[in-house]
Design a protein around this nucleic acid. Sequence first.
DNA 1: CGATACATGTAAGTAATACTTACATGCGGT
DNA 2: ACCGCATGTAAGTATTACTTACATGTATCG
Lengths: 216, 216
Amino acid sequence: MGSTTTKKGASGSTGKSNLPPARLKLAAAMRQLLRTKDFNSITTAEISRTAGANEALIYRYFKDKRGLLHQVLYDYLLEFHSEIQNEFKAAPGALDKLRCLVRAHIRMYDSNRVFAKILLLEVRNYPGYFESATYRLVKNYGKMVTEIVREGVASGEIRGDIPPFRIRDLILGGIEHFCISAVIFSHEISVAATAGQLCDLLFKGIEAVPKTGRGV
Amino acid sequence: MGSTTTKKGASGSTGKSNLPPARLKLAAAMRQLLRTKDFNSITTAEISRTAGANEALIYRYFKDKRGLLHQVLYDYLLEFHSEIQNEFKAAPGALDKLRCLVRAHIRMYDSNRVFAKILLLEVRNYPGYFESATYRLVKNYGKMVTEIVREGVASGEIRGDIPPFRIRDLILGGIEHFCISAVIFSHEISVAATAGQLCDLLFKGIEAVPKTGRGV
DNA sequence: CGATACATGTAAGTAATACTTACATGCGGT
DNA sequence: ACCGCATGTAAGTATTACTTACATGTATCG
């Protein structure tokens, strides 16, 4: 994600090492403030005060206030990515993988409300977001989901008469809407139950199964 | 929606009549500006200039800049509501109604990009939105969808082993994600095809149907 | 060892902008 | 003719994101 100055190692992300302390403190301050306030009502003065760093450092280490927001989201996304890769270890089929992914995604939203708030509420409205490296990560995640769907189509687990990206959209849209109300109003989420119901609906559809003689 | 002064008739909405001309012009200006710019980068000066009205009038007729945005969305929602009621005339079953609703909803997003942008991108990030009369309309729409689902469960068309509000969430989440990319990047939407695919997925699920001897 | 280059940190300043306030104007009703 | 009230106007203010010019510490290199 390089800020202004591209250092040698550390590839730009906030990997804790190398990066100037003020930079890390500013990101931490942004995360903390987002727990209780929305992005627009957080002032740069507040951020620097909370971080115990000078206001101008925001603009040295990030493009602007939104750049800082994007960086915070970026770090969360890296964490999420690696977490989800691990989960896949023991998932043989595409549907298993999707079940896994849905659960991990919802769990991430539940246990990390700031992450959920940023992704679901705070970035979409700013056009520049869609040019950012952060958005590129999000897009990659989407591609990964599409890839799993494609895999499922190939193996015969998932229907092939609908474009895979549509199926991906339904999955991601479902996840989002199953969580967004809880995120906005700070309600709890029962991860297992929510993920289970969502997968059930996604896989089987909403139609009642007609009373066919014997199942399958 | 009453602004500051609650007039006798007109129930507050921008029903064209009674309301001061400047108020209408400001709303129209906001709509026009939103066609090309995001809410945050539209200034009050720009709004008033475009409307040919004085800047202070924004604050006389609306609570603030966001109040104006909410009013614009409110008007769109009224239009959408009445449009959707009409469509229902010739929809006997719950699934027919849902099919109808999905198509109407997507068509509305397609033919009214400003409406879609506001609802999908611009309001969610502001906490005050969820206290607004505008949000109450949106919530009512959600309740209506849930009601249709409940009707479908009662008639045996829709499965009853999942809470209706979950089914609603999947439907609305699906609609949103099927459209949001086109809204953000100003691509066209093929309403019929998109709605068809979405309903198909929603109703039947994403699993490939196993080769059961004879269908139904 | 001293000097230089550079990253990090600081403080004061500026332009833009959402919102306010106090004032003018037109008009309908009595 | 006059009063009340809704509508419209102009100038002002406080906030805030962002800038710029400067200070400090530290590691590198002659």
